[in-house]
Amino acid sequence: MLTLIKPKSSGDLARMGVLLALAALILFGALRYDNFLSPFNILSFLRYNSMFTLIALGMAFVIITGGIDLSVGGVAACSSVVAAMLSTHSWWAGLAGGIGAGVVAGLINGLVVTKMRIQPFIATLAMMLASYGTALLLADNQSVSVSYDTGFTVIGQDDFLGLPIPAWIANGAYIAGWLVLERLPSGRHILAIGDGEATAGLLGLKVDRTLTIVYLASGALAGLAGVILASQFGAGQPTEGVGWELFAIASVVVGGTLLTGGAGSVGATLAGALLLALAFNILNFENGLGWISLSAYWQSVIRGGFLLVVVILQAKLDSNRKVD
């Protein structure tokens, strides 16, 4: 999947850096831990982190347009509850319902940003709060068990051709995202909007429609992540998803995508997400060895640290480019 990266801008250095860091972590883990490259660890890693790679993909497109989507965690939580509730009817009802909830949230985000001219930060923050509130209301402030009789749990728990189904889903989403950004005219439109909405409008591009579709896609991917969450853990989780937006933003930025928009890479976003996930996987192994003892709360500290360091590096690279 990492072959999807195609250097295009001054972010090339950051993208190559994330690849080198990812390779270095894999090598470190393979040399230090006996079971690091075991089938169990690899499959568990791919299965669990597919949710985060999906929301990172949606976030990448939003950030490339110069926007932000803070609602992805809340939308995933709400979608997991909807999917669990509908899974009693059939597996496809749970799948369609979860994705549909994400589509509705993303569409609202897009319309509020484009039609009401509300800043994406405020619009998606409001949607995040509304999504968590809706999830808690629907679930009556408790987990909602999925149906084990309709085959819904197959989506998150089963394998196909030796790989977890969630990994296949994420892989398909990234291939589609790469095609959109690199091979279709819509990708050039998204990049142009990130360079400047006013200029894109003067060029005749349908800015509002493109932005709405981008936010809708981000919501749909968050909804799909929510479906996998419910299927994988056997229950809709109304309080899950806290901090997911930070993971997504950090993955995108670590991958070299500029927060100012106008440039980005789908493949580098995947590398960034895998890098962050791998760092947490290695911490779990270290905890097991007994050399260190870090709680799960340190994950937020690490994500924040990664994000801060990379944003600082981005700012320095951007200032050097302007000087040159």
Rank of each mutant, 00 (worst) to 15 (best):
L54E: 05
G98L: 00
R117A: 15
G204Q: 05
V62N: 02
T153W: 03
P39V: 05
M16Q: 06
A250M: 04
V253P: 01
V252S: 03
S50G: 10
I108S: 05
G11V: 03
A56E: 00
L136K: 14
W168K: 08
A93R: 01
G29Y: 00
A235R: 01
L224R: 06
G94S: 08
L95S: 12
H89Q: 15
W291Y: 09
S10K: 13
L137W: 14
F285G: 12
L313A: 14
D140H: 12
G106A: 10
F306K: 06
P238R: 01
L2I: 11
G243M: 09
V82R: 08
Q299L: 07
L202N: 14
D159W: 08
W91G: 15
V242P: 02
F160V: 09
L307C: 04
V82N: 07
V214M: 11
M85V: 11
G201P: 06
L191Y: 01
A200N: 10
E182Q: 15
F121Y: 07
A277K: 03
F160G: 09
G304K: 05
L19P: 01
V104T: 06
V112R: 02
I190L: 06
R209G: 15
I5D: 03
L31N: 07
L2H: 06
V75W: 03
K206T: 12
K6N: 09
K115A: 15
S50L: 12
R183F: 01
K8H: 05
W291N: 14
S300W: 00
G255Y: 02
G177H: 01
L107W: 06
A296G: 07
T65K: 02
G11E: 09
G98E: 00
F61L: 15
A77I: 03
A200K: 02
K316F: 10
A176V: 11
M16G: 14
V75M: 09
L203F: 02
L95F: 13
S265Q: 08
V72K: 01
A225Q: 04
M127T: 13
F285M: 14
G194V: 14
W298Q: 02
G172C: 09
L211P: 05
F280H: 10
G187A: 14
L25V: 06
T199V: 15
S10I: 09
A220D: 09
T260H: 00
N284L: 13
V62L: 08
A225I: 00
A96Q: 00
A192T: 15
A230I: 06
A76N: 04
E286Y: 05
L19Q: 09
L270G: 01
A24Q: 06
A235L: 10
L289A: 10
N109M: 09
D12N: 13
F121P: 08
S44T: 12
K115S: 15
G17V: 08
A222F: 08
V309M: 15
V72M: 05
N141S: 12
G100T: 03
G262S: 07
G234Y: 02
A273G: 14
L138E: 10
L229K: 07
G272Q: 05
L191Q: 06
L308T: 08
I165L: 13
